[in-house]
Computed example of a mutant assay.
Amino acid sequence: MNAATLSSPVQSPKFKKDHFGRALMIGAVIEALMIGGLIYSHLSQPVTVKPKPKIMAIHMIKPAPPKPKPLPPPPKPVVHPKPIPKPLPKPIPRPVPHPVAHHPLPPKPLLAKTPAPRAPVYTPPVTPLAPPSPPAPSPAARQSAMDTYAAMLRTRVQANAHVPDSVRMMHVGGTAVISFRLTPSGHLLSAQVAQSSGIGAINRAALKTVEDTRFPPFTKKMPKHPMTFDVSVHLSAHGS
């Protein structure tokens, strides 16, 4: 037998099988310890439980009606103390009057009463009533009165016409229409030549004739305001 053979033991199959079983058991123990350590460390940690959110329910409560105030108690009747009657005073004895004889006086003479003076009574003066105004004339009566007055004016103006010497020397003639305005009293307000005769001397003579004529007032049936009249004045050298 050599040295190499003596120094190294012979590894039999049985030795190999025991060595593998030990290693397997050690590995299982180590794994079990590790699992146990993990479980212990997990159990040792505090468990945190999340609180559930609280649900708040709000209920609307109708307020109760206010209680009626109690009525105040009725006032106590006031009791007035009864007045103490005062003692009546004793009556004082009056002296008995003695009758006295009265003599009748003579009657007084009656005096006649003088009446009190009375205040003068004022009587207002009586104003005489104005006579009623006459009724207004009808339009036909007014127009008739105006036509009559106008005819009278033409006759009066023509009768007052005077032929001047200038017209006589010219041996001419003609008719001029003069328009003039009168007041109800017959006063002449204005006069002008409304239609010329073609000859200045005749126009001037006709206008002067109207200005020199006196006119009567209006009649009762004519209007009470100024009026305008037209008069034809004829002048000729052969006239008077």
Rank of each mutant, 00 (worst) to 15 (best):
residue 205 A to F: 03
residue 105 L to S: 03
residue 111 L to A: 14
residue 171 H to V: 00
residue 56 M to F: 09
residue 151 A to W: 00
residue 13 P to S: 09
residue 74 P to D: 07
residue 3 A to D: 13
residue 100 V to D: 00
residue 168 R to Y: 00
residue 76 K to F: 04
residue 181 R to A: 14
residue 174 G to S: 08
residue 230 D to S: 13
residue 154 R to D: 06
residue 186 G to I: 02
residue 102 H to K: 14
residue 55 I to P: 03
residue 125 P to V: 14
residue 73 P to K: 15
residue 234 H to Y: 09
residue 10 V to H: 07
residue 38 L to S: 01
residue 217 P to C: 04
residue 82 K to G: 03
residue 20 F to R: 15
residue 153 L to Y: 05
residue 185 S to A: 14
residue 224 K to G: 14
residue 102 H to S: 08
residue 165 D to L: 09
residue 162 H to Y: 07
residue 191 A to K: 05
residue 124 P to W: 00
residue 107 P to F: 01
residue 183 T to Y: 02
residue 159 A to T: 06
residue 158 Q to F: 02
residue 185 S to M: 10
residue 52 K to E: 09
residue 19 H to W: 08
residue 215 F to G: 01
residue 232 S to K: 09
residue 163 V to Y: 02
residue 68 P to Y: 04
residue 160 N to S: 11
residue 174 G to C: 05
residue 186 G to Q: 05
residue 43 L to I: 11
residue 219 T to C: 01
residue 76 K to Q: 15
residue 159 A to F: 02
residue 42 H to K: 13
residue 158 Q to K: 11
residue 115 P to M: 06
residue 120 P to V: 06
residue 78 V to C: 07
residue 76 K to P: 10
residue 128 P to H: 10
residue 134 P to F: 01
residue 16 K to T: 10
residue 15 F to N: 15
residue 110 L to V: 11
residue 106 P to M: 05
residue 110 L to W: 01
residue 13 P to I: 10
residue 61 I to L: 13
residue 3 A to W: 08
residue 102 H to V: 11
residue 183 T to Q: 07
residue 211 E to C: 04
residue 135 P to D: 03
residue 179 S to L: 10
residue 34 M to D: 03
residue 159 A to Q: 11
residue 70 P to Y: 02
residue 96 V to Q: 00
residue 143 Q to S: 12
residue 28 A to W: 04
residue 28 A to P: 00
residue 149 Y to Q: 08
residue 134 P to M: 07
residue 222 M to S: 04
residue 238 H to D: 13
residue 212 D to I: 06
residue 91 P to K: 12
residue 107 P to C: 01
residue 223 P to Y: 00
residue 139 P to C: 01
residue 13 P to C: 01
residue 163 V to Q: 01
residue 48 T to F: 10
residue 23 A to V: 07
residue 21 G to E: 10
residue 60 M to T: 10
residue 43 L to S: 07
residue 59 H to A: 14
residue 26 I to V: 11
residue 60 M to N: 12
residue 146 M to C: 09
residue 74 P to R: 15
residue 229 F to N: 08
residue 40 Y to V: 15
residue 15 F to E: 15
residue 206 A to G: 10
residue 122 Y to F: 13
residue 95 P to C: 04
residue 115 P to R: 11
residue 100 V to F: 03
residue 174 G to P: 00
residue 42 H to P: 02
residue 148 T to K: 15
residue 117 P to D: 05
residue 44 S to N: 13
residue 223 P to H: 00
residue 9 P to S: 13
residue 130 A to H: 05
residue 229 F to D: 02
residue 67 K to P: 05
residue 76 K to V: 14
residue 60 M to C: 04
residue 73 P to W: 06
residue 22 R to S: 12
residue 153 L to M: 14
residue 131 P to L: 12
residue 35 I to G: 08
residue 164 P to D: 08
residue 240 S to L: 01
residue 187 H to C: 03
residue 185 S to E: 12
residue 152 M to H: 12
residue 58 I to A: 06
residue 111 L to G: 03
residue 227 M to E: 08
residue 97 P to R: 09
residue 186 G to H: 04
residue 155 T to G: 12
residue 10 V to S: 11
